[in-house]
Nucleic acid binder design. Structure first.
Lengths: 207, 207
DNA sequence: CGGGCCATCATACGAACGTATGAAGGAGGC
DNA sequence: GCCTCCTTCATACGTTCGTATGATGGCCCG
């Protein structure tokens, strides 16, 4: 019933909630902790959003929304589809690096018991379609091998998402520290190379 | 301090906890709900495991442990490394299909704020090393292109894990229903094809 | 200047949480 | 038959949860 938009307090609540939801999960992030971090009163969530649940929905929609524009920005251009796909992978990595909380929020939505928000599904669908259409374009001009474009898009998207999700585990488990720019660049380029090789129709030697 | 092993009640608690933790997260699954589902008394968790936290640790270790043996079973053999890698991908998919709760439990561990259990890290590390060593073998005999084997292993593993995690979202969002065996087989084979293409050194035509 | 409105505040309420406690049950050894 | 130990049981404790309530503050418009 509320459309709180972006007053100072509401925006601060969304930001604090994004951090705490990502860190501790929906149930693990208490209304008291969120309002305290936002510098707001305990009743602020109820007042601005109606309930904790509604705040969560607002948080994830706000966090996911920019991803599609980022992908779009990387995908447009006049280069060959394969190159634009590589740019999209790099852009997606970049976006996830800037929004490290997003994969955690997404995965909570995907694995929770309640139904997935229609807005979240819509954004996800749009991103998959965008990548799939690039693949299709490459298949038409012969630069990308045959195969279901949608499934290929999923193979592509899996890698940035999961590698961002597992950041802490990779650091602790196999000493891959994505906070180090050089390490991160290596990782990104490895994935880009894997995607390029996985898609390319002609087995031309690379680089 | 307890080493509960597998008495009836303790095993039932682990099973019920695995289901509820996967469904609702650590904080979302209450001790009361778990014990009720296991048909045990409210105090059973404290008695057998000492605390809810210790039960959680037991659950995830028990769930992850078989994965390494499954991968090992698929990876050994005398075929070419690329074929054994494909078998490993298929086996990993199969394992995740039989243990749909596992990715959810894993991702909770990876994204929570508390440190990741050393046992979980150990199993993960073992799986990555196994795949990486297969890649390395293929690079030595020239069948797999150059590149960091560990990073390539991460690209490979990302796909089964994330696609299992996103199962519900893929069903609701892009109508890919992994419960349908034919759909699932298509998905698995698409990933296997992507991995093969992503690794292969010689661009020989496939199939 | 005064009344209306929106935002923030302290505080309270009932419910659910994880854990602690001590009694009751029940099979096995002497 | 009784004593012992392991397990299960009902119940209670203190804490924290999300939300509700009514008072208080400050700004704008008439």
């Amino acid at each position: 019933m509320h459309t709180p938009a972006a007053t100072g307090t509401a925006a601060a609540l969304i930001e604090a909630a994004r951090e705490l939801f990502a860190l501790h999960g929906y149930d693990g992030a208490s209304v008291r902790a969120i309002t305290a971090r936002a510098g707001a009163n305990l009743g602020a969530i109820t007042y601005h959003f109606g309930s904790k649940e509604a705040l969560y929905e607002a948080v994830i929609v706000v966090a996911m929304s920019p991803s599609h524009e980022r992908l779009l920005g990387a995908a447009e251009g006049d280069g060959p589809p394969l190159e634009r796909l590589e740019a999209a992978v790099r852009a997606f990595f970049g976006f996830l690096y800037e929004s490290p909380e997003l994969p955690r929020l997404m995965v909570q939505q995907l694995t929770a018991s309640r139904p997935i928000s229609e807005k979240v599904l819509g954004i996800m669908r749009g991103n998959i379609r965008l990548i799939a259409s690039l693949v299709e374009e490459g298949q038409k001009d012969g630069s990308i091998r045959a195969g279901d474009p949608q499934l290929m898009a999923l193979s592509i998207g899996s890698q940035p998402i999961w590698l961002s999700l597992a950041r802490r585990a990779l650091q602790a488990g196999v000493a891959i520290d994505q906070d180090d720019p050089r390490t991160r660049a290596k990782l990104v380029e490895s994935v880009v190379g894997f995607v390029r090789a996985g898609l390319a129709a002609h087995p031309e030697s690379e680089r």
